[in-house]
Simulated assay, not measured.
Amino acid sequence: MSDEVVTPGQAPRAVGVRAPWEAVPAGLRAAVEGHLDARIVAAETQLGGFSPGVAARLRLAGGRRAFVKAVSAAQNPDSPRIHRSEARVARALPSQVPAPRLLADFDRDGWVVLLFEDIEGRTPAQPWRPAELARVMSVVGDLAAVLTPSPVDVPPVTESHAGSFHNWRDIAAAHAAGTDDLAGLDPWAVGHLGALAELEAGWAAGAAGDTLAHGDLRADNLLLTPDGRVVVVDWPWASRAARWFDLLLMLPSVRMQGGPPPQQLFDAHEVAAGADPDAVTAVLAAFAGYLLGSARLPAPPGLPTLRPFQAAQGVAALEWLRSRTGG
């Protein structure tokens, strides 16, 4: 593939509101230095991603580098649990997985701190460039090969996503009860709400599998290194799922950010070979419902940019779903 830019999309940026390194209490910063056995001489906040906590590249005395993630319930009540989950997965990932190595993690004074090796790299260009997208699609295949069967004890996707993949059924029930006027929903979704709720109900059986899925593959969770590697960061949502689960969840964001139609990429990819079409459609319906239903809710504490990002992905996912169902 050439390196020319693909069709641009008008996508919201995956940028949250990060707390600066200086927001970490002094005693906690000293503890980080203790774990790294070096004095921190500079910290550069990284803006990508949605966590409201600290995410910073640290430069240490002597020239070494590290990456720190730190959060407390004051930034978002759910974030400490998410960081602890990420640490559990990161500790257990096999060395063949292209992910940053976890150096240390600890809880102190209400904060959860994770220290990783610092990766020299950048996120993929937006809109997507074909050559970079090809690199990433290749890594999606590599991950499925290395991570099947799952080498890490994580929940099955039927458990990890049970609280998320029910929005069409919830919306339909609320509409039937007269408590949801469907304001803001796509007209096609409104006209097919019953069918969408029925499709969504089959997602759990469709998504089941024994591949360790990242669960949140997007451009802002990928680093392209100067030596040609693709490094996958942020693993708190890992679960056991179908080999194609990560690919399916990633493709609406690719489309949103100027990439090719999802169906084109999905059908051509090795991890989708032999996938049950009905299972794929059910999971896609559930994911589209999750995105579009979540986008109608108020922003979570500390994450003011999340809902527009979900809405834009939802538009792409629904477009794909319509093409699969002949809508």
Rank of each mutant, 00 (worst) to 15 (best):
H214K: 14
S323Y: 12
P80T: 10
A14C: 09
A288D: 02
G49F: 00
L265M: 06
D220C: 10
L143E: 03
P226S: 11
V68G: 01
A275F: 05
L36A: 08
Q257G: 08
A74C: 13
D186T: 09
E33S: 14
I40S: 02
F50M: 06
L133T: 01
G326M: 13
G194S: 10
M1E: 15
D220M: 08
P301H: 07
E117Q: 12
Q10F: 15
L212W: 07
A26R: 15
G302I: 06
F67M: 10
W235S: 01
L251V: 13
A172L: 13
A74I: 12
V231K: 02
E319D: 15
H214N: 14
G121T: 08
S79Y: 06
D109M: 09
A273Y: 10
A125Q: 14
Y290R: 06
L249P: 03
Q96G: 15
L196H: 01
G191T: 12
A14P: 04
A242W: 01
Q10N: 15
Q75E: 14
V139I: 12
V68M: 07
R129W: 07
A26D: 11
E159R: 15
R57N: 06
A19F: 03
V230A: 05
P77A: 14
A197F: 09
W168Y: 04
E120S: 12
D276A: 13
I171R: 00
E200G: 02
Q257R: 14
P77K: 14
G215W: 00
V233R: 04
M256H: 07
G27V: 12
Q264S: 15
R255I: 05
T7Y: 09
A268V: 12
E86W: 02
A272R: 00
L303K: 05
A316I: 07
M137S: 07
A30E: 10
S2Q: 12
V271P: 00
V15S: 05
E117M: 11
A316L: 10
A241R: 08
A70N: 02
G191S: 15
P187T: 11
F165T: 03
L36D: 04
I40A: 03
P52T: 03
P262D: 04
L28S: 03
P52F: 02
Q264G: 12
A134D: 09
A295Y: 02
A42I: 06
F266L: 04
P155M: 08
D109L: 10
Q75N: 10
G215T: 07
E198Q: 15
G121M: 06
E120F: 09
V54Y: 01
A42H: 11
P8L: 14
A19T: 03
V232H: 02
G62M: 06
T325F: 08
S95T: 15
W168K: 01
A295T: 03
L306H: 09
H35G: 09
P304N: 11
L321A: 04
T225H: 07
L196Q: 01
L103F: 08
R243M: 09
A285W: 05
L182E: 04
G27F: 10
H166V: 13
A241E: 05
S95P: 10
G258I: 00
K69A: 01
